[in-house]
Amino acid sequence: MPTGVPIGDARERLFDAADRLLLQGGPSALTSRAVTDEAGTAKGVLHRHFADFDDFLAQFVLDRAHRMDERAAALRDAAGTGTVAGNLAEALTAVFESVAVGIVALVTFRDELRARLRETWPAGVPVLTDAVEMIADYLAAERELGRLDPGAEPEGLAPMLVGTAHLLFADRTGRPPTAEAVRNAVASVMGGVLV
């Protein structure tokens, strides 16, 4: 790769390459060489933008976690429309069909990455904690609209829904769960709180 050739937004290009590698090969596929090769950049580009590879990985994970903001806004906007179970199933599928399952494995796989994330991320695993917050906010909105039992506890239901969806999508080698399987799982967790 020639030097001095502009490559656009190098950070985003490297992050997109990490997405593809993580989805295709899991956490062990992410090396600095693999990322720069996938991005079509010189290895020095990564080190020009990040202190080291763990810094790159931490920034990648945080970037992907912050992308949950758009999904959260869309889900909140869906409150009062469609069905609660359908909206939840769609949102959970969108989260876990993305790179989220791979990020969970990546954070679990790399001790140094977890240590770096703890500097800026207070607890939990980025993306999963965002998903829990997104679901809890949505459930609170639906409860206010009267579509959930007034005694429903969004803060308890949200982690159960995210955990259930994570288990459904965790097998990266098999086929993803069907939409019906996700809806059934959501309906099971929601039990008697749907009005």
Rank of each mutant, 00 (worst) to 15 (best):
G26H: 07
T178N: 08
P177F: 12
V45S: 13
L168W: 08
L167P: 00
Q59D: 14
D54M: 03
H66S: 09
T173R: 15
V45L: 10
R48G: 15
A165H: 04
R110Y: 06
R67T: 00
N87K: 02
D69R: 13
M1H: 09
D149R: 07
G40Q: 09
M134Q: 05
A79K: 01
A89H: 06
F15S: 05
L30T: 06
V189E: 04
L161D: 04
G82V: 08
E38D: 01
D37F: 12
V61K: 01
G192D: 15
T108R: 15
D111Q: 14
S188K: 13
A165I: 02
T178K: 04
A187G: 09
L139E: 00
V84C: 04
E155L: 10
S98I: 03
T173G: 14
M68A: 08
G191L: 06
V195D: 10
A179M: 08
F60Y: 15
D55I: 09
T178I: 03
R13G: 11
V107E: 07
R67Q: 11
R67I: 01
L21E: 02
D69E: 14
L22E: 12
L168S: 06
V162G: 04
Q24M: 10
D77N: 13
V5N: 07
R67G: 13
V195I: 11
R11G: 04
